[in-house]
């Protein structure tokens, strides 16, 4: 993915910035410029807020066939997470054994390397999630 394209989304990928509709209060992630409930009434009234960073696993999969960029990480866990703020997002789950993962598991965001651009590599960072209240294994 081209560098500017990744850079444009960094506020949300680094800090979980979402949007909140000034008309109805609905929170959206990733941020939207139009609220799907309020349409025109929301234009110019979308505020930026930071998500609390924790939530529960709605569903997950252990990925065995991965595209080139993720080849080194496989098998890895990908999940849809229902955040406490009410929004959902898709993210990898780390510091978690395959046998410990389950629907409903509480997880929190952690800032990690997502991938890198080409061989020389500009490194992309963003959120991954790990089980709540567990200390990551020592490196």
């Amino acid at each position: 993915m081209a560098i500017p394209r990744f850079w444009r989304e960094t506020p949300s990928r680094y800090n979980l910035f979402a949007s909140k509709c000034g008309n109805c209060g609905e929170v959206h992630f990733p941020p939207r410029s139009v609220c799907p409930s309020c349409h025109r009434k929301s234009i110019g009234r979308m505020k930026s807020i930071k998500l609390c960073g924790s939530g529960k696993i709605l569903s997950y999969s252990v990925v065995h066939d991965a595209p080139e960029d993720f080849e080194m990480q496989k098998p890895y866990i990908i999940a849809i997470i229902e955040m406490k703020d009410g929004v959902r997002l898709t993210a990898p789950i780390i510091d978690c054994d395959e046998c410990d993962i389950d629907i409903g598991l509480e997880v929190e965001a952690s800032f990690r390397k997502l991938g890198q651009e080409g061989k020389a590599g500009v490194i992309h960072y963003g959120y991954k999630f790990r089980p709540l209240n567990t200390t990551p294994p020592e490196k």
């Binding site: 993915m1 990925v63 991965a66 595209p67 898709t90 997502l114």
Partner: peptide
């Protein structure tokens, strides 16, 4: 990778969600 481009590149694929893994999450749920 090309098939995965039919999902959301910015908010699914970039985090490692493949096309089969998205259907797998529907199945698991």
């Amino acid at each position: 990778q090309i098939l995965s481009a039919t999902a959301d590149q910015e908010w699914e694929s970039v985090f490692g969600a493949t096309f089969p893994s998205l259907y797998a999450m529907m199945a698991r749920r």
